[in-house]
């Protein structure tokens, strides 16, 4: 029983980490119909920024984290202005551009940061004995709570604020929203920046647990796409549920079926969802 609870806890924690790693992709797809293949690279860069700021330049880790996210936000804005904006209206172009960008950034990371895995310092160390049942790493618990905080903030931002309203307006109908006075270029730019910042947030939160490597970015993007497709393209709620489902299924599957096929369980679920509910668990059925 202890072991089952441990597997479940870990599934939920990894699930939330999945969700935070994927929500940036979901946001950008939902609002702009752009699939950002360079998501994993932004995540990796944030992890490295956070590492170098704190380990090499001596910035306190708590300051290095938001600072790294802000850098990634700026990179996101820059990407949108230069590469993505000219492709509006043609999803294929943006797809190819972000794909090429992901390869360029991956190699740049290899060149700049070297091949070794790196991680920012832990904010907390050791493990907590949970209800006297099992030990669980403190850094994981902390990252879990920070992730939940960020997810709640994003939901609040999108559902309750004026900025969120204009984002949703643009995502529903770009032309109509500009007719009623929403500056859709600005909204797109900010939402792409926000999506990038979320990749960065995931990077700085998760990197102390799972150190970043330049070539680890493809796995992060892939995982994010699985979560997004599972939950439904563009649905934030779907993203959280998709992430949790993936985390729990992988952990219980690894525990009770085989550790060897951990990553396959996620893909089996993905295939089932694509066969029976191609629009995802919470996505909108295409008209």
């Amino acid at each position: 029983m202890n072991e089952f609870l441990m597997y479940l806890t870990n599934g939920i924690v990894i699930g939330v980490i999945n969700a935070i790693s994927a929500i940036g992709v979901s946001l950008i797809v939902g609002i702009m119909r752009v699939v950002n293949f360079a998501h994993g690279e932004l995540y990796i860069f944030a992890g490295y920024f956070s590492y170098h700021l704190s380990a090499s330049l001596g910035v306190p880790p708590l300051l290095a984290m938001p600072l790294s996210i802000f850098f990634i936000f700026l990179i996101g804005i820059g990407m949108e202005r230069t590469l993505i904006r000219p492709t509006y209206g043609d999803e294929m172009y943006s797809l190819i551009i972000t794909f090429v960008l992901s390869i360029v950034l991956q190699n740049a990371a290899l060149l700049i940061f070297g091949p070794y895995p790196n991680k920012p310092p832990n904010l907390v160390s050791g493990a907590t004995n949970i209800f006297g049942l099992y030990h669980y790493g403190n850094q994981r618990l902390l990252s879990f709570f920070i992730s939940i905080g960020i997810l709640l903030f994003i939901f609040y931002l999108i559902k309750r604020t004026w900025f969120g309203k204009s984002i949703r307006a643009v995502s529903q109908d770009r032309e109509m929203s500009s007719l009623v006075g929403v500056d859709h270029l600005r909204v797109n730019m900010l939402s792409f920046g926000l999506g990038a910042a979320l990749a960065g947030a995931a990077g700085v939160i998760v990197a102390p647990i799972f150190p970043v490597t330049p070539t680890g970015s493809s796995a992060i993007s892939l995982n994010a796409f699985v979560v997004v497709v599972l939950g439904g393209m563009g649905s934030l709620k779907g993203c959280v549920i998709g992430g949790l489902a993936l985390g729990i299924i992988e952990n219980l599957g690894a525990a009770y079926l085989s550790t060897m096929y951990r990553n396959i369980f996620g893909f089996v679920i993905l295939i089932l969802v694509l066969v029976f509910r191609p629009w995802g668990l919470f996505g909108q059925k295409a008209q």
Partner: peptide
């Protein structure tokens, strides 16, 4: 048995 590119080993370790 574990996957070559695994990052999370909590289940295996438990």
């Amino acid at each position: 048995k574990v996957e070559r590119e695994s990052k999370d080993f909590y289940t295996e370790l438990t």
